[in-house]
Computed example of a mutant assay.
Amino acid sequence: MKILLLAGNTLRAKAYAQSLAHANFEGLEVKGLLFGDFNKSSAIPHLNVETENYFTNHNIFIPNYENSLEQTFEDNHWSFSKVANRDVNSEEVLAEIDRLDCDLVVFAGYGGQLLKSPHFTAARQYLHMHPGKLPLERGSTTIYYSVLNQRKCTVTAFFMTPEIDNGKNILYKEYEVFGKNVDVDNWFDNVVRADCFVSALGMLLSGKATPETPEGISDEYYVIHPVLKHCALLSLRES
């Protein structure tokens, strides 16, 4: 299988690439298309004790955000190209995806980006990891809604379509709700998505995946209000 990591200059893309390297799958050709501004570096979020303990206790691989995405590709002898355009739907990005010729595109772009229909005209499929149980938890910031609804935090791996959060599901992976002081936005969200990604990819490579069309339609969750987010965090137990 030939896969392409369609990656912005983000923490999530770093987590995906490093988790993929750690999984060390056989029979996999990995390429990268790094789009956007990779000359700009952002602050590296601190990994506090509570966050590190959560991952360690649940046997989840912890990426090193100090390592650049380019360095991970070079260390693993994966080829990659760059496009300066930050628009994932730009003609430059679409043309480069066509040129790189892959079976599966793994989407790790910038927050809030949506793929438009030209991405879905070719035979290749797009894999996305959504932090919520689909179709129950559609939309944004669903991790906090899971906490408020007293449910486990679920990540859904699915094949994308032009409709938001509406493709065939490959895998649901549940994670215990984190405790107080765990860094949700910088660490938990990105790392559990990366963990689900390698699990889903393993199933696809082994032929054990049976993608299923989700049944039912739920309300869409929008970006959580700061007061609701605060309530969700207040409800957490001590780590």
Rank of each mutant, 00 (worst) to 15 (best):
residue 4 L to T: 05
residue 5 L to N: 03
residue 11 L to D: 03
residue 12 R to N: 05
residue 12 R to A: 06
residue 12 R to M: 09
residue 13 A to P: 00
residue 13 A to D: 01
residue 15 A to E: 00
residue 20 L to N: 01
residue 21 A to E: 02
residue 21 A to P: 02
residue 22 H to F: 08
residue 24 N to F: 06
residue 25 F to C: 02
residue 36 G to E: 05
residue 45 P to K: 10
residue 47 L to M: 11
residue 56 T to K: 11
residue 56 T to W: 03
residue 56 T to N: 06
residue 57 N to H: 05
residue 60 I to H: 00
residue 63 P to L: 05
residue 65 Y to L: 15
residue 68 S to R: 14
residue 70 E to T: 14
residue 73 F to Y: 12
residue 75 D to K: 15
residue 75 D to G: 08
residue 77 H to M: 13
residue 77 H to C: 11
residue 78 W to N: 03
residue 82 K to E: 04
residue 85 N to K: 03
residue 87 D to Q: 09
residue 94 L to T: 09
residue 98 D to Q: 15
residue 98 D to C: 15
residue 105 V to E: 00
residue 106 V to Q: 00
residue 110 Y to S: 12
residue 112 G to D: 06
residue 115 L to S: 05
residue 115 L to A: 04
residue 121 T to C: 10
residue 122 A to P: 12
residue 128 H to K: 10
residue 136 L to E: 14
residue 139 G to A: 05
residue 140 S to K: 11
residue 143 I to T: 07
residue 145 Y to P: 03
residue 145 Y to R: 09
residue 146 S to V: 06
residue 146 S to W: 04
residue 147 V to E: 02
residue 155 V to Y: 00
residue 157 A to R: 02
residue 160 M to F: 09
residue 164 I to P: 07
residue 164 I to H: 13
residue 167 G to I: 01
residue 172 Y to W: 08
residue 172 Y to K: 04
residue 180 K to D: 06
residue 181 N to R: 13
residue 183 D to V: 03
residue 185 D to K: 04
residue 186 N to R: 06
residue 187 W to P: 02
residue 187 W to A: 03
residue 188 F to P: 01
residue 189 D to Y: 00
residue 189 D to L: 02
residue 194 A to Q: 01
residue 195 D to C: 04
residue 195 D to P: 03
residue 196 C to E: 05
residue 197 F to C: 04
residue 202 G to I: 04
residue 206 S to T: 08
residue 207 G to C: 00
residue 209 A to C: 05
residue 213 T to I: 12
residue 217 I to G: 09
residue 219 D to Y: 09
residue 220 E to G: 08
residue 223 V to K: 10
residue 225 H to R: 11
residue 227 V to W: 07
residue 227 V to Q: 11
residue 230 H to T: 14
residue 233 L to W: 04
residue 236 L to D: 07
residue 237 R to W: 11
residue 238 E to C: 11
residue 239 S to Y: 14
